[in-house]
């Protein structure tokens, strides 16, 4: 992995990371000193529903950034947009994003991956009817043998194939999948498939890896080792952006947290500051989460009137905002 190291020292030192993140202002869309991914005005609408509406987001190089938010917040859609699996509705009206200085506005999913930003999927896409080893070998970039003209002549690609094989075995060993290398990927457990998908993504020597719910459906013992792997990637100098629901995981490994709700960025900050942020608590629990619905006082006409007014005001505000944008 050392070839792909971007920041020479990496971000292995926790104190250095804390010092770095303490310099960021904790508000949505804040600027960072060395962003690897910069996203501007990405809007995705499905019919009348706005799934994603992100004004500005920067992801700092060499850190683990968590993207959290309640169900339906648009996290996965945002992932799909940034990695080229979906096109933003705002494609012609100001949607820009760049990765490591390269503009990605119009590129396809495969060229995003070639630029060095590789993703995994929420529902793992292990290639079930191929062996674990074949799965890994597919991850490597710039294979001469994948060119149709050269494929017929094995001496042209034999040597490169062997190098890739060594690398694949190394990675499989690291993810403790080596003894499974000749099994069909379909026979692996859900957690092992997650590991395989991550290992396969790493075969392409990415600069940044985007993990969509890496811990979903993984047993607690395996979660520990997965977390270890993700941290060691960061220590090797890779940037990690991941979507996760488990707050313990987020608190445990992320250096910076971005919160989405209803398609927008609502907060940014370190794990602790974000979790005490009222906007985040509102997003997860609703604005009236601390009101006791069993309280008889709520049934009085005055109180109901008050709540109705509050709702009306909120709706008006939202509409006004909608017209503006």
């Amino acid at each position: 992995m050392s070839e792909s190291t971007v920041t020479p020292a990496g971000m292995a030192d926790p104190a250095a990371r804390r010092e770095l993140t303490s310099g960021f202002t904790a508000e949505p869309g804040t600027a960072k000193p060395d962003p690897i991914l910069v996203v501007d005005t990405i809007v995705r609408q499905f019919g009348g529903m706005t799934a994603v509406d992100v004004g500005h987001l920067e992801v700092q190089r060499g850190l683990i950034t968590a993207l959290i938010g309640p169900n339906g917040a648009g996290k996965t859609t945002f992932f799909n947009l940034v990695t080229g699996f979906d096109r933003p509705t705002s494609a012609r009206s100001g949607a820009h994003w760049s990765f490591d200085g390269v503009k990605l506005d119009k590129t396809s999913a495969s060229s995003v991956a070639r630029a060095g930003m590789v993703r995994t999927f929420q529902l793992t896409k292990a290639l079930s009817r191929m062996t674990v080893m074949d799965n890994m070998m597919l991850g490597a970039q710039h294979q001469a043998g994948e060119n149709l003209m050269k494929a017929l002549f094995s001496p042209v690609w034999r040597a490169q194939e062997r190098e890739i094989e060594v690398k694949a075995k190394d990675l499989l060993d690291r993810f403790s999948l080596l003894e499974k290398k000749d099994d069909y990927a379909g026979s692996l457990s859900g957690g092992q498939r997650k590991l395989l998908e991550m290992a396969r993504a790493l075969m392409s020597d990415p600069k940044m890896i985007m993990l969509d719910e890496p811990m979903a459906g993984v047993n607690p013992a395996l979660t520990q080792s997965l977390l270890g792997h993700i941290q060691s990637l960061r220590d090797d100098g890779m940037t990690v952006l991941f979507v996760e629901h488990d707050m313990h995981v987020v608190r445990h490994i992320s250096d910076w947290v971005v919160v989405m709700a209803e398609g927008r960025l609502v907060a940014e900050g370190t794990a602790d500051t974000v979790m005490s942020n009222p906007a985040v608590i509102d997003a997860y629990l609703g604005a009236h989460h601390d009101t006791d619905l069993g309280d008889d006082e709520l049934l009085s006409d005055d109180k109901l009137q008050e709540i109705a007014e509050e709702v009306a005001a909120e709706e008006a505000e939202r509409e006004a905002e909608g017209e503006k944008s």
Binding site: T83, F85, S108, A109, S110, S111, V112, A113, R114, V118, R119, T120, F121, K125, A126, L127, S128, R129, M130, D134, M137, L138, G139, Q141, Q143, A144, G145, E146, N147, L148, A151, L152, S154, W157, E161, R200, A201, M203, S204
Partner: peptide, 29 residues
């Protein structure tokens, strides 16, 4: 036989299994 045993043939099978996964690995499906 030669084509299928080559990395190109491996790509074919990968596409048969899941196009999106192959796309996410930077291949021109």
């Amino acid at each position: 036989l030669l084509l299928v045993k080559s990395p190109w043939g491996r790509l074919l099978k990968g596409i048969r299994e899941d196009e999106d996964a192959i796309r996410s690995l930077g291949k021109n499906v």
